[in-house]
Computed example of a mutant assay.
Amino acid sequence: MKRIPQICLLLVLQFCPAIAFSQIGSAETQVNVLIGQVLSIQVSQPSVNIDMGLSTHFINGNSSAQQTNHIQITSNNGYEVSVRSASQFFSLNGNTSTLPVNTIMVQTTLGDDLTGTNSSPSSSLSVNGSVPLSTSDATVITSGEGESARGFHVTYSIPASQTGSYLNKEPGTYTTSIIYTVVPQ
């Protein structure tokens, strides 16, 4: 019989709500995202050759062949890419020659998405095909939107119409520096 009061007490405690007092509080924080201007350009092949060593090259012209993803752009907003030569004439053995750089055409085409996600390029992307090399900036790429990492293929060529400039030149390696510049749009 002593057990019945204990069982009744347990049942009462089990079915009666217990009143618990606890402290309720909150805290907050502010998260700031600092977006800066991200604008990056790289050239993947630091040296490119155009061979003018065969008679057919002086008849038909020649090219460097396509330089895959030669220009690589990262920009978080719209951008524009231009190309120019550092000098008006090629150098031979460190000396300025009479061979003008404007005999070279720079042909740019859409390359690959370099993020690995195969994303499509922006609908505002415009690639300006082929431009003659010059000491003045020539726009080759324009995009109204940013991209994480996009490549562009480039082919450097000497068209048949320019091969006469290469006649009667001292054999050797003629060089010029080509500068690509990316600016926000």
Rank of each mutant, 00 (worst) to 15 (best):
S75Y: 04
Y156I: 01
P132I: 01
T68K: 11
S82A: 15
L99Y: 03
N62C: 05
I141M: 06
N49G: 09
S148T: 13
D137W: 02
E147Q: 09
L39P: 00
S47D: 10
Q107A: 14
G94R: 04
I41N: 08
I41W: 06
H57V: 03
S97C: 10
E147T: 15
E147V: 12
S130E: 13
Q66M: 10
P121Q: 09
G116W: 14
N95C: 05
L99V: 15
S26T: 15
P159H: 02
N95L: 13
N69Y: 03
S82D: 10
G94N: 07
Y156D: 03
V83D: 01
V48W: 04
Q14K: 05
M105P: 02
R150S: 03
N128G: 05
N76C: 07
D51I: 07
L54Q: 14
P46L: 13
V33P: 03
N93E: 14
S44A: 14
Q42P: 02
I41Y: 01
S124K: 06
R84Y: 09
L13I: 11
V127F: 11
N118L: 14
I35T: 06
D51N: 14
V81W: 02
I158F: 00
G151A: 06
Q66T: 11
Q66G: 09
A86Y: 07
T103A: 06
I73Q: 03
Q37A: 08
V31K: 12
I35K: 08
S55V: 15
T96N: 07
P46R: 15
N62D: 15
S130C: 04
L114S: 09
S55W: 11
A18K: 14
Q88K: 14
P121E: 09
G25T: 15
